[in-house]
């Protein structure tokens, strides 16, 4: 992407979004002084230590936002480094501007040389792997994670298609598509912090689940409209011996969707750069 593409409405939108995120996160960090909530891990460990003593889950529940942020950061650093090292087109140094790109050998396979079983099963495998990745992220409401795993599984489907079919990859993610879903994922993940921040002052407070507003000293009550918007879509009935209870994961499944899009965009971009480089002409030939 050239800098001139960021001029106009797209650049204004990006600047406003970054400003909102910067102000929100900065103020939330400043307010942390003496206001760190203990998190849900004590309750989790008290209730579930006999059934599932999973300290990793407790950590993830308490620090969900940081967990996702660091995961995303790692993946994007990998993507940027791959593009810089292998793509060579993103940063155009003056001394190499006139040089031809390194010639790349075609990765096309002759399908006739592929084992007959693979020939018939790789396409279904790619489709079902992608669907499995989507199943993982939609299951985030009943599990501790999902976004990162979904991204890795879908990226695996993309890589398998690339290995067996080369440029005729059935899951033919284009560069623009990957950048678009990666950017959408980032925006969704970051801006989901806004409702919680505006109401409570805590960035990414889970306004759908709202565990803490009933505790004395909590800064705000969450409006019921936010419970409805962010809580009801993922509400589940827990039919237990003691009665029927209702539970919702709130914004966590949405964060996972954002994270999944992030990871799919970043990892597939790494694979794409490894295979095709960062060249418009190479992609156009594909």
């Amino acid at each position: 992407m050239e800098m001139k593409e960021l001029r106009g409405s797209r650049g204004v939108l990006a600047a406003v979004a970054l400003l909102i995120i910067f102000i929100g996160v900065t103020v939330a960090f400043v307010q942390l002084n003496g206001n760190v909530a203990r998190g849900i891990s004590p309750e989790y460990n008290r209730l579930a230590h006999l059934q599932q003593p999973n300290s990793l889950s407790a950590w993830v529940y308490d620090w969900r936002g940081f967990d996702t942020l660091i995961e995303t950061g790692v993946i994007y650093v990998g993507a940027v480094v791959s593009v810089l090292v292998i793509g060579r087109g993103l940063v155009r140094m003056k001394q190499v501007e006139g040089e031809e790109p390194v010639p790349q050998t075609s990765l096309d396979l002759k399908i006739g040389s592929v084992n007959a079983i693979l020939k018939y099963f790789i396409f279904p495998l790619v489709i079902l792997l992608a669907a499995y990745g989507i199943l993982i992220v939609t299951g985030a409401a009943t599990s501790g994670g999902g976004g990162f795993q979904c991204g890795v599984v879908v990226a695996s489907a993309y890589l398998i298609g690339a290995v067996f079919f080369g440029k005729k990859n059935p899951l033919n993610f284009r560069r623009k598509f990957l950048i678009a879903i990666g950017s959408f994922g980032w925006a969704l993940y970051a801006l989901l912090g806004l409702p919680g921040y505006l109401v409570t002052g805590y960035w990414q407070y889970n306004v759908g689940t709202d565990l803490w507003s009933s505790i004395a000293g909590f800064p705000a009550q969450i409006p019921s409209i936010l419970h409805t918007i962010f809580g009801d879509p993922y509400r589940l009935a827990l039919v237990l011996k003691g009665g029927t209870f209702y539970s919702t994961a709130g914004i966590v499944p949405l964060i996972n969707i954002g994270e999944a899009f992030n990871v799919i965009g970043a990892i597939c971009l790494i694979f794409l750069v490894f295979i095709y480089g960062w060249s418009d002409t190479e992609e156009a030939k594909a």
Binding site: A130, A131, V137, L171, P233, L236, I257
Partner: peptide, 22 residues
């Protein structure tokens, strides 16, 4: 509950999005 239907709808929507790239 919503939690039983939403994943199906979301799964379909994301699947459709990826399907456009097949």
């Amino acid at each position: 509950m919503g939690g039983e239907i939403t994943p199906i709808v979301v799964g379909f929507a994301i699947g459709f999005l990826f399907g456009t790239q097949v």
